[in-house]
Amino acid sequence: MEQLVEQILEPHFNFWIYVILMMIGLWAVIAKNNLIKKLIGLSIFQTAIILFYVSLGVKEDATIPIKKPTPIEYSEKAYGGEAEAKGDYAAADKAPADKKTDGKTGDSKKKKKAYEKINPDKIANPLPHVLMLTAIVVGVATLGVALAITQMIFKEFGTVEEDEVLKVIKGGGQDD
């Protein structure tokens, strides 16, 4: 039982639920009769996809993507070959950048600072967050457009039920 949870349920449970939410949303978009219910279904569909994207960036035991590296004292060790060999991007990339701007701006103070190495596995992946953050705000703006069109349909046909709207359209619109 414990093995079932750890091996099968835990790695994929989230993705199953996203697929189920997507199915609920899609079913509502196709089968529901009321236009506002359709829009709620569309929003659920959208959130399922956004959830899927964000959960791709989740890492086990990772913190939120806000990290100010603590400066460590400048030393040859952190700057020289050893840092590069270890893959210490923070220190290794610092060196050419400083060389370039050297002399133009008074960098003498900054040059003494090197930052501790950040372990990328301990910070959640920020890229899906960025993409989905804008998608949410754009989503509510487009939802507003959809709701405006719904109100326009209500003004034209006097109803937001799909079958009644279709009846009026097929009947040539003599109801008015």
Partner: peptide
């Protein structure tokens, strides 16, 4: 990978601790 570049290099490039804002 791109996201690892963002995580490790953002503070060096732009002095912004919040990586999401910097990428955005």
């Amino acid at each position: 990978s791109v996201s690892q570049y963002f995580i490790t290099q953002t503070y060096n490039d732009s002095k912004v601790p919040n990586i999401v804002t910097a990428v955005l």
